[in-house]
Design a protein around this nucleic acid. Structure first.
Length: 416
RNA sequence: CGGGGCGUGGCUCAGUUUGGCUAGAGCGCUUGGUUUGGGACCAAGAGGUCGACAGUUCAAGUCUGUCCGCCCCGACCA
């Protein structure tokens, strides 16, 4: 991709509309722009990161046997009245009346819709378990949207739902999801904490939250600074670590995922029953599993940045590399840059070529700000010997090598 | 919703305390020239209902009132 053909409006100065690091960097690096409080546009670079995260999620969901589908965001309010959550959701759910005078709402989550769907299509124990998921936009009229994409009124969520014949089946699916979540967050380069939690409005017996330590985090967790194995706590119990006695440390965190054992809460209220082998009608045993996909982007940046900008973890970097020809009027430099761009693109490796007629300093600053994992710098002196520089964003270390060698190295990194 | 802060070209801000002539700066943008390895320099330009409405006044970016928007602290959550 050529820089001139995409849309990456970078900001030299920090916009005053933001206070958290991730929000500032997302604005400065041209990932997002605000339309109104809690509502954001994802620009090409932001969308690329989002897509990379979604790709990881899809792979791990598939690995644990979940099938992808897409449910409507526009829903009949009636379903929510039936489940009893029309009242529970209160002002958070956006409701309105359409031209046919139908009472509708924008889905803040999808337990009702999925249960209604599965109920109408599944009637036998032979069809269970069924595990479905979607990646979709949710609408929540938050009391106070903040930290940019971290608490937004319109955001992207991955939500999965399991339907089982019995508790044992639910246990199995719950464990599989728990494991998948670990895999997803690890691949996103996150340092995270799994913690047992309240089920809240979702209801049900057991739930786990996945928390990412970040200075701007809204949730506080207490954990032992010495032994990481020790169970973390959500409330201030003023206790010392049960393992080693050390005083617990306060950690600000962002919640990026939450999984629940719902049991029969929704199957009961919405009548999702199946006929079991013993000829008896029984309610399906449910679980639901959410990941805040757009919020994950912010969480990753909170953990992966330095004074110069974002430092993307390998797998979610919007591009594998950014090529920086330092003089676009120089035939040799541009020839080399284009050749590299073409060869890597031909191998399916996505690279960004900064073809802007800007001074070297501007390109260096922007490249560091964007945080793409590798930078290929092509300057006048090196290009004479067909050499280019490869800079690793994370370490800022540069190595000089032949063009072909750098291409080969980038291919190796991509395969890894 | 309660508490605090802010609103002036695309971005960052000065000017508001103490009202006064055609509303400023830096960055960005356009044109020309000189530059060219860490956000260059010179020159000439374009770009503004000073958040909105109402009021006070000879005169309002500046004073008063109402409203709107955004940010931060609390309850909610992925």
């Amino acid at each position: 991709m050529l820089w001139s053909k995409t849309f990456i409006p970078t900001l030299k100065e920090t916009p005053q509309e933001s206070e958290s690091v991730s929000h500032q960097l997302m604005l400065r690096a041209g990932l997002i722009r605000m339309l109104m409080a809690g509502v954001y546009s994802y620009l090409p670079l932001g969308l690329k990161v989002l897509n990379n995260i979604q790709k990881i999620i899809r792979q791990e969901m598939q690995a644990c046997g979940a099938a992808e589908l897409l449910l409507p965001a526009l829903q009949p309010r009636e379903l929510w009245v039936k489940s009893g959550r029309d009242e529970v959701m209160g002002e958070v759910m956006i409701r309105f009346i359409d031209r046919r005078k139908r009472n509708v709402c924008l889905g803040p989550t999808h337990e009702e819709v999925i249960t209604d769907l599965v109920k109408s299509q599944v009637s036998s124990y032979r069809q269970l378990p069924t595990v479905l998921y979607q990646i979709q936009t949710k609408f929540r009229d938050e009391i106070r949207p903040r930290f940019g994409v971290v608490r937004a009124c319109e955001f992207i969520m991955k939500d999965a739902y399991s339907f089982d014949r019995d508790e044992a089946g639910l246990d199995k699916n719950y464990q599989a999801m728990h494991k998948a979540y670990h895999a997803i967050f690890k691949r996103c380069g996150l340092d995270f904490i799994g913690i047992e939690a309240d089920s809240g409005v979702m209801g049900g017996s057991l739930s786990h939250e996945f928390m990412v330590p970040a200075s701007s985090g809204e949730d506080i967790i207490w954990r032992c600074p010495k032994c990481k194995q020790a169970k973390p706590f959500k409330e201030d119990r003023k206790e010392n670590c049960p393992e080693c006695g050390t005083e617990l440390a306060k950690t600000n965190t962002i919640e990026i995922g939450h999984i629940f054992k719902l049991g029969t809460k929704y199957s009961d209220t919405l009548g999702a029953n199946f006929l079991d082998a013993d000829g008896k009608l029984k309610p399906m045993i449910m679980g639901c599993y959410g990941i805040g996909v757009s919020r994950l982007v912010a969480a990753v940046i909170e953990q992966h940045h330095d004074d110069f900008g974002i430092v993307w973890p390998q797998e979610i970097s919007p591009y594998r590399a950014i090529i920086l020809p330092l003089d676009v009027t120089d035939e040799k430099i541009m020839g080399s840059a284009r050749a590299m761009h073409e060869e890597l693109s031909a191998c399916g490796i996505e690279v960004l070529l900064d073809d802007r007629d800007e001074r070297a300093g501007v390109k260096f600053k922007d490249a560091d700000l964007l945080g793409i994992t590798a930078q290929v710098i092509i300057g006048k002196e090196y290009v004479k010997q067909n050499n280019v520089e490869l800079k690793v964003r994370r370490t800022q270390q540069k190595t000089i090598d032949k063009e072909e060698a750098v291409i080969a190295q980038l291919k190796r990194i991509n395969d890894a």
